[in-house]
Design a protein around this nucleic acid. Structure first.
Length: 394
DNA sequence: TCTGGGGTCCTAGGACCC
DNA sequence: TCTGGGGTCCTAGGACCC
């Protein structure tokens, strides 16, 4: 990233089997037992979200169809998941991190980078600082974490997965490349199944194999971006370029149906429900969007999308529904069943930004304000559930 | 064993403008 | 008369991550 990156010290902290560990902590009777989060046996079209280490011994892992997990480990404790609770605990842990450094980059609900550069005077060398963090989290939440330490965020990320659970792996400055070369190819974070298959196809089966190829060759095969990523990753050069915020955001919602939808009425109802949910989230985050995307996944799993940028931002759930139906009808030919529908508000921006008022129809603005007011009302009084009549009739 | 939901980033082609 | 070159925005699809 820059010339003095070798002086940097990054920690990557990863919560061990987070959701499952929370359940085991909340329910001591689950301790030592295989716990699988994601659904209950019999749930159609569910996948494993998290498997405890006890369940992993049976071959159960994240993203696996739940039916397969039931087959591999029928005696496991199955839980659909309490995501509100997980995110509360995640919040608490992230705030513990911020006691150790002002620069905490949260990557997801269960992992973060901490820039520990220059904290030696406060917390000692990397090892003792990492042990302090682990101790603090264990004492305050009863959970264990694995930590990777390196001058490169990319290497720190891989190091945190080197020893799990409750691991600590420190890669001293200068050893990044050596560490990367010691890893099996499938540990190359950022090269997923498609790239792994492609690499093997052309005879590159180890990280060392990739390392032996020139930048130009890799770019000619994998393209500019993926090629230079591979070249740098195997050298431990890769550093995240965190586009210091200000990037465009998207908010999306989707749902997979237990049984494929075929009739017009249930499709429209499903889309209306999605619009309602998405609009609520836009209100909540005080965002608006001009670009709407509709996603359709057919029974054979082929997935298509259609999007359009409109002159005016979406203002209300009625408006969103109108745009959604317009996009849906542009693509859907009615010939096959639908297993998933999704909608996305792409390139969102703050509602506080000025909008070109001359383009903003007054009636629409009124509707938007009304809806926002209803949203605020519901926020203050959650028992007040305002819902569209059509969504209630079932 | 049929494959969730919420995201980000990249690519390639086309439209449109100068 | 068979037509440049660059920039930007938009769209559809895909890879990847947790």
């Amino acid at each position: 990233m820059n010339a003095d990156s070798s002086n940097k010290t990054y920690f990557h902290v990863d919560l061990d089997a987070f959701f499952a560990s929370v359940e085991q902590r909340d329910h001591p009777e689950y301790k030592g037992k295989p716990v699988i989060i994601g659904g209950l046996p019999g749930d159609r079209r569910a996948v494993v979200s998290t498997a405890s280490y006890e369940a992993r011994k049976y071959g159960v892992h994240s993203a696996m169809p739940l039916s397969k997990a039931v087959e591999l480990c029928p005696q496991a404790v199955f839980i659909r998941g309490n995501y509100k609770r997980y995110s509360e605990i995640s919040h608490r842990i992230m705030s513990i991190f911020s006691n150790f450094s002002p620069v905490v980059i949260q990557m997801s609900i269960d992992e973060a980078f901490i820039d520990m550069t220059g904290t030696e005077k406060l917390f000692g060398p990397a090892e003792s600082a990492a042990l302090k963090i682990k101790k603090e989290i264990l004492e305050q939440t009863g959970l264990t974490v694995s930590i990777g330490v390196s001058s490169s965020m990319y290497v720190a990320k891989i190091a945190s997965g080197y020893k799990k659970p409750d691991g600590l792996t420190i890669i001293p400055p200068g050893d990044e490349e050596k560490f990367m070369l010691s890893l099996p190819l499938d540990k190359l974070w950022g090269a997923g199944s498609k790239t792994q298959a492609h690499l093997k196809e052309i005879g590159l089966t180890t990280i060392r194999d990739i390392h032996s190829k020139s930048l130009n060759l890799l770019i000619s095969i994998f393209g500019q971006s993926a090629g230079s990523f591979l070249y740098n990753a195997v050298r431990g050069n890769k550093d995240y370029i965190f586009g210091t915020e200000a990037k465009s955001h998207s908010i999306s919602t989707e749902s997979t149906f237990e049984f494929d939808l075929t009739d017009r009425n249930s499709i429209e109802k499903a889309l209306m429900e999605l619009c309602w949910n998405l609009m609520w989230r836009l209100h909540k985050e005080n965002l608006r969007s001009r670009t709407i995307m509709v996603k359709i996944r057919y029974e054979d799993f082929t997935t298509i999308s259609v999007q359009e940028s409109f002159t005016n931002p979406v203002s209300s759930s009625d408006d969103l529904y109108e745009k959604t139906m317009y996009l849906f009808n542009k693509k859907y030919d009615g010939s096959s069943g639908i297993r998933l529908l999704g909608i996305c508000a792409c390139n969102t921006e703050s509602r506080d930004l000025p909008v070109q008022q001359n383009l903003f129809d007054f009636g629409e603005e009124k509707k938007a304000r009304l809806e926002k007011a209803i949203y605020n009302l519901e926020e203050k009084n959650p028992s007040l559930k305002v819902r569209k009549a059509r969504l209630l009739s079932d």
